[in-house]
Simulated assay, not measured.
Amino acid sequence: MMVDVSNQYDVILDVREDRCPMPLLKAKMALSKMQAGECLCVISGDSGSLRDIPQYVALVGFSLLSLSEEERIYRFVIQKN
């Protein structure tokens, strides 16, 4: 069961219906429009996101604040630095 997180993040990106590489591409696009210090919550149903998103976040120097999984739905919380 998904918990309502709408007021905890600056941007919520729901890409549960998308497959690789779209979750990562959409996350990149969302982050490019955000200000430093803002948080993005990415909700993905693609297991490839488990590799792609943390790798990208580390590469560009952002912070992966949390990563959780519930019933094959992956939630990433990224802070743009």
Rank of each mutant, 00 (worst) to 15 (best):
V57M: 03
E38K: 01
F76P: 15
N81E: 08
S6V: 02
L13W: 00
P23A: 02
S32E: 09
V42Q: 05
R75S: 15
D14C: 14
I43M: 04
R72C: 08
M34N: 01
L64N: 13
P21G: 03
R75Y: 11
S63G: 11
F62M: 11
S63W: 03
K33S: 09
L64W: 08
E38D: 08
E38Q: 13
I73F: 06
G48Y: 11
M22G: 03
V60D: 02
K28A: 00
M2W: 10
S66I: 04
A36P: 12
I43K: 05
P23E: 01
V11P: 09
K28S: 08
G45A: 01
C20W: 08
V5D: 12
S47Y: 00
G37C: 13
M22W: 05
L13T: 01
I12K: 04
C39N: 09
G48M: 14
V60T: 07
M1T: 15
L50A: 15
D14T: 09
M29K: 14
Y9P: 08
L25I: 06
M22Q: 09
A27N: 09
L13I: 01
S63E: 05
M22Y: 00
L13V: 10
M22A: 05
Q35A: 06
L40N: 11
S32D: 13
L31D: 00
K80G: 08
L24W: 05
S44I: 02
R51S: 14
D52T: 10
E70L: 13
L59V: 15
E69M: 09
M22H: 08
L64M: 13
D4G: 00
Q55T: 13
L64Q: 13
C41T: 02
N81H: 06
L13R: 01
A36M: 07
L13F: 01
E17Y: 05
I12Y: 00
C41F: 05
F76V: 01
V42G: 01
L59F: 07
G61Y: 11
S49C: 06
V77L: 14
R19M: 05
V57I: 14
F76N: 07
L64P: 03
C39S: 11
G37A: 04
Q55M: 05
V60A: 07
D10N: 14
Q8W: 02
V15A: 03
V11N: 02
R75C: 14
D18V: 06
D52W: 06
V57N: 13
I78R: 11
I78T: 03
M1P: 15
Y9M: 07
E69Y: 10
S47R: 02
D14R: 04
Q35P: 02
S68D: 14
A36T: 12
A30L: 01
S49V: 03
K26C: 06
E17V: 15
K33W: 02
K33C: 09
E69H: 01
P21W: 00
V11S: 05
C39V: 06
L59S: 11
R75H: 13
Y9I: 08
S49D: 03
Q55C: 04
A27F: 00
R51V: 12
